[in-house]
Simulated assay, not measured.
Amino acid sequence: MKISPFQKDKSGRLWFVFQLLILCFITLTSSAQTGINVVSAEEFQLQLNTSSKPQLIDVRTPDEFKTSHLKNAVNYNFNAEQFKDQLAKLDKNAPVYIYCKGGGRSAAAVKQMEKLGFTQVTELKGGIMSWEQNDLPVETGNVKKGDTYLAADFNELLAAHQYLLVDFYAEWCLPCKKMEPALAKLKTQYQGDVAIERVDVDKAKDLAKTLKIEGLPAVAVYRDGVEIKRVTGYQSEKELVGLIELLKK
């Protein structure tokens, strides 16, 4: 049986299209594995488990790292002078996984890494707080500090105030520190009307886990002991006032 020139040409075109589709698939797959990504704790764990040689970086302070950290993580303190020099030791073209306590320092570190030319960086959304909230495994060191602020203390706070704004913060959190002046001002301004309190999550780890606080700062407003709204991240004075006004509606 003879094959016409048209049939030969058609077969060749089909083969070309098939090869083109394969090339596109490879390109898209490769692209999905590069760049800067912020992923959930579950996805972060999955990627770590499937990566052959992950470069896992914890950018918290050495004291925080000693308390608990992810297995095989290396501690590069974001606030240390040698941080950029430490980053230079990493392979810029290989996958890097990075995390901090709540996501603030790791996000700032990722920006530096982008400028330095890193091509594959994955950041843990919500930091190790989110990781622990999901009951994922951590390595614990010799330093273990017990909570000094308990759920009972928080419940007492809720019971004492009809209208309450709570700022969940940590001493190492730069956005938290930036919010302090506005919170102090509003605490005086709304005194006797709306209570404004702060809770250090490093002294209330169990409470933070119970309340599912996965990023800092976290600000929540409560009416008669019931949470009305919660926001995560830096809040301006105007935004804080907006949260307070929700309590009166």
Results as ranks from 00 to 15, higher is better:
Lys212Phe: 11
Tyr222Thr: 02
Glu123Arg: 13
Val110Arg: 01
Lys125Pro: 06
Tyr149Gln: 03
Ala195Thr: 00
Glu156Lys: 05
Ile3Cys: 07
Asn49Cys: 00
Val74Gln: 12
Gln7Ser: 14
Val96Lys: 11
Leu90Tyr: 00
Gly146His: 07
Phe154Gly: 05
Asn79His: 14
Lys229Phe: 01
Asn37Thr: 14
Val59Gly: 05
Ala152Phe: 02
Pro62Ala: 12
Lys8Phe: 01
Thr50Cys: 06
Asp85Pro: 04
Val231Gln: 00
Pro181Cys: 02
Lys53Met: 13
Asp147Gly: 00
Leu21Gly: 08
Val199Asp: 06
Lys2Cys: 07
Leu14Trp: 05
Tyr76Gln: 04
Val138His: 12
Gln7Val: 13
Lys229Val: 01
Leu216Ala: 04
Glu227Thr: 10
Lys178His: 09
Leu174Arg: 13
Lys185Val: 01
Thr27Ala: 15
Asp147Asn: 03
Arg230Cys: 02
Leu183Asp: 05
Glu239Phe: 01
Lys8Gly: 07
Gly215Ser: 06
Lys71Ser: 15
Gln162Cys: 05
Gln33Met: 11
Ile98Arg: 00
Met1Glu: 12
Val241Ala: 03
Val17Ala: 13
Leu183Pro: 08
Gln45Trp: 07
Tyr163Ala: 13
Ala41Tyr: 01
Ala160Met: 04
Glu239Ile: 03
Met1Ile: 07
Ala208Asn: 10
Ala152Gln: 07
Tyr234Met: 12
Val121Pro: 09
Lys249Ala: 09
Asp63Asn: 12
Glu132Lys: 11
Val219Pro: 00
Lys125Asn: 15
Phe78Ala: 10
Ile26Cys: 14
Glu64Ser: 14
Leu46Asp: 14
Ser130Thr: 05
Arg230Gly: 01
Cys173Gly: 06
Gln133Pro: 08
Leu186Pro: 00
Glu180Ser: 11
Phe18His: 06
Leu87Gly: 00
Gln120Trp: 03
Glu43Met: 10
Gly127Leu: 08
Pro175Gln: 09
Leu158Gly: 02
Ala107Gln: 11
Gly225Asn: 04
Asn93Ala: 11
Ala160Tyr: 02
Tyr222Ala: 04
Leu211Cys: 13
Lys101Ile: 12
Ala204Trp: 04
Gly103Ser: 03
Gly242Leu: 08
